[in-house]
Amino acid sequence: MGFFDQPLTVSHYLVIGAVLFVMGVICMATKRNAIGVLMGIELVLNGANVNFVAFGSKYLRESSLGLDGQLIALFVIVLAAGEAAVALAIALNFYNNHATIDVDNADELKG
């Protein structure tokens, strides 16, 4: 009960952002599927976005970033869309050329 009657703070959001971020990092590190790695990147960006929105929220903090937080979050979302398009194109090209989607096989430049 102690948790639910407390008002929200920025720290609450930061913890969620941290969890999403770390999950994304682990996802990027462990997945062998190129698209799985891409999903990890999305999670990382999303975790960062949670932080931006939390710092920009007038509701959570009296002296907030204001609009800056929300606008940077918007930019992150839009850039993530572009990033996903390019990364997906790379992944599909890789799949076409190597007939696999396993990133461990992308080692042609290895000496």
């Binding site: 407390q6 703070t9 720290s11 930061l14 952002g17 509701y59």
Partner: peptide, 16 residues
Amino acid sequence: LVSVAFSVDDWSSPNP
């Protein structure tokens, strides 16, 4: 990251 999140008083105190 979590320890950082709770390290600043301004962040962990609610908006009055």
